[in-house]
Every structure is written in structure tokens, then in C-alpha cells.
């Protein structure tokens, strides 16, 4: 039954990870961080990734029409140097948070990292 800090510690064990955080996408507020952030600025990473999430959330293109929940799972941005993973945390009550994972492209396995982050997001809110 991990809390945010434990979940972020476990995220730091994902191969190739550089840094991680739990962020509210409506405000860019970080609930916790671990490791490094691009340009050593966790707050900027939170604000910037939350803007990406807002852009996705306000558009109908990415909406799973007819479903009982927003249906949003993850966002993946790849660059020549790294991977940025965003995983939505689904809670039984209303909330707007995601786990953010920054990975070194040379050392990370994108598929593995995505599965691990999915499991961490689920474990955060389940018994």
C-alpha cells in the first residue's frame, strides 16, 4: 500500500530512469519528485508536462466516446535524447494527477518502462 514517496522511489528503479514526479495537471503542482528533471528544474517539468496534458484533455479526439470514465491511459513523447512518459492515475474519487517519468533513451526500454509505470499508478490507489 505505497504512498506517493514510495511509488516515486519504485519508479526510480525502472531501467534507464532519470527522474520522476507526481503532478496535478490542472495546476502543474508537484505532489512529489525523485531523481533529476530536465534542466534540473522539477517545477518547470511539472508545469510543461501539465500543459501537454491539458491540451490532450480538452480535445475530443482523444476521448473514448461512450465510456464510463475518461479512458485516458498514457502519453509518450520521444526525443533524440530521451523518453517522457505520462501515466494518468485513476482514482475512485475525482482527481487530476499523473505520474511523470523521464528516461535516458540509450538505457531505457520504452515498453518495459510503460508497463512498470502503469503498475505503479495502479498500486498507488489499490489495496
Amino acid at each position: 500500500m505505497p504512498g506517493i514517496d514510495q511509488a516515486l522511489s519504485q519508479a526510480m528503479e525502472i531501467p534507464g530512469v532519470l527522474g520522476t514526479g507526481l503532478i496535478d495537471w490542472t495546476s502543474g503542482l508537484t505532489l512529489g519528485t525523485a531523481g533529476r528533471a530536465p534542466h534540473d528544474d522539477h517545477d518547470a517539468a511539472a508545469a510543461d508536462t501539465s500543459e501537454v496534458v491539458q491540451a490532450v484533455m480538452r480535445n475530443t479526439t482523444f476521448d473514448s466516446a461512450g465510456s464510463d470514465d475518461p479512458g485516458m491511459e498514457d502519453l509518450i513523447l520521444t526525443t533524440s535524447g530521451g523518453y517522457h512518459l505520462i501515466r494518468f492515475v485513476h482514482t475512485a474519487f475525482d482527481s487530476q494527477t499523473y505520474l511523470y517519468l523521464w528516461l535516458d533513451r540509450e538505457r531505457a526500454n520504452l515498453a518495459v518502462a510503460r508497463m512498470r509505470l502503469r503498475d505503479l499508478a495502479a498500486a498507488l490507489v489499490s489495496d
Partner: peptide, 15 residues
């Protein structure tokens, strides 16, 4: 509640 649920719900309400 799980610890994670407590922390997330607390923060959502606070914000």
C-alpha cells in the same frame, strides 16, 4: 483508503 488515495484526495481538495 490507501496511503496514495489519502494523499491524492487531500491534495485535490486542497487545490
Amino acid at each position: 483508503l490507501t496511503r496514495g488515495e489519502l494523499e491524492i484526495c487531500h491534495l485535490a481538495a486542497l487545490l
